[in-house]
Amino acid sequence: MAVNLHAVLELPGLINKENIIEAQLMWILAWNYLLKYPDKILEWTLQHLYIILVANASAAVLGILIGIFISREGREQLADTVIYLASIMLTIPSLALYGILMGILSALTLPSIGFLPVVIALTLYGLLPIVRNTYTAIREVDPAIIEAGRGMGMSEQQILVKVKLPLAVPVIMAGLRQAIVMNIGIAAIGSYIGAGGLGQPIFRGIANYRVDLIIVGAVFVSLLAIIMDLIMGRVELITTPKGLRIRGRSND
């Protein structure tokens, strides 16, 4: 690995052999940090997780409600607009969004740094995949199935609750999974405005040139994302109605 790294890093002529040794040293230091302060890392991880869960729970509730609302027939125009706005939201850099939210929150005399602005920002970011997936999933339920339901005397609400939503669950869950994984990365930046979490070692490391801290933060953010992705994959499977999981065991 050292040789490869050397070959690559030497190209720009910026990093020499000593630097590479130093880089390897940083990984060792990071490992030592992990052994020495596991409780600190755990604390950051839990903070991070907490932010993510609160933000994505709100994004899920809001997103699914919005998704359902805009999926009603005759609201296609509205749906386009909402999804467009949600995707614009994603293009705003998180630091800028935090800044904007700080301004708004302080004007409202709410806490403008720390947990609240970060959770709000992550909720906004999480909306797009959830709203879009909810909308698409509901709109793509086979019209024959909906017609059958209506023809048998189901009210629009019964069609939504008993037919459309159960059939949309897998796709909605996929959107939630996407939102969570994406937000785990963005949440790290939240530490910059004092929300805690695994961004903390990263920013501290940058400020003090402690590469080992940066490595610890980065590795754990990535691990968290991977683990949450796996968990949400399971959740997606479990929440999928059984009839949709079974495929083609037909016999006549």
């Binding site: 024959a144 199935i145 059958a148 023809g151 037919v163 059939l167 109605p241 009839g243 949709l244």
Partner: peptide, 10 residues
Amino acid sequence: IQNIGLFPHL
């Protein structure tokens, strides 16, 4: 109906 429209989740 022609496409039957059975509820696949039930």
